[in-house]
Amino acid sequence: MILIRALIIFLSILLVWHLITVVTEAPPYILPNPKLVIKAFISNSDLLFFHGLITLTEILLGLTIGLVFGIISAIFLAYYQTARQWLMPILVVSQAIPVFALAPVLVLWLGYGMASKVAMATLIIYFPVTAAFFDGLRRTNIGFLDLALTMNASQWSILRHIRIPSAIPALASGFRVATAVAPIGAIVGEWVGSSEGLGYLMLHANGRMQIDVMFAALFTLSFIAIALYYAVDAFLTRAVSWSPETHFNIKKD
C-alpha cells in the first residue's frame, strides 16, 4: 500500500512538472522536461551509479562514526559531572557554527578525498545522536534503579542492563534525525571540493549546462536519502518494538 501511494505521488509530481514545462515553454537548460531527465538518467546510469555509490559510502561511514562517537559521548556525559560541565557548552557552541562554514576548512585539512566528506557527515549527525541518547540515559525510571540496587547490581551492570536499554528509544529518535540530515553533510562536502560523488557530478553538469544530468543526479540523491531513511526507520521500529508508538487518531466508539 505504501509503495502504491509512493508511486502515485511520484507520478503526480512528474505530471505536474511536465505540465509546467509545457505551459511555461521553459528552455531545457533552465527546466528540462521529465522525458529528457529520464533519458539522461538511462544514458548516464553507469556514471550515476558510480557517483551515487561514493556518496552513499560517505553517508554510511559518517552515520556509523557519528553514531559510535555520539553513544560514547552521551554515556561519558551522563556518568561524569565534570565532563558534563566542561563539554556540554562546547557541544552547544559547536552546533552554532554552521557545518557549511566548516566545509572549506575540512577540505583544506583532510583533502579532496572521501575523508573530508565523511567528517562533514559525522559532524552533522554527532549532535542529534549525542543529545538524544544523553537525554534518554538521564530519564531512566527511578523505580528500575531502586529495584536494581536491592538486587545488589553494580554501577556497570545498571548501565549495561538498565540505563542503556531504556534509553534505546531515545537513541532511535536521534538516529532517525541523523539519517535524514547526514546526506546534507556529504553533499556540501562534495560541493566545496571533490572529484567524485553526486555533489561533484551536479556541479560539474551544471557548469556544462547539462541540466538534465544535474536533475538525474538530484533524483538519484533523493532516492538514496529516502531509501536510507525508510530502511533505518523500519529497522529501528522493529528494534524497539517493546516501546510502541501510540497513535493520535485512535477511533473512539
Binding site: 523505580g143 528500575f144 529495584l147 536491592t150 536499554p165 531504556s166
Partner: peptide, 12 residues
Amino acid sequence: SYMAQNDLLFPW
C-alpha cells in the same frame, strides 16, 4: 527484596 506499587517489569 523489593516489590513496588508499579510492577517495575522491564518492558524490553
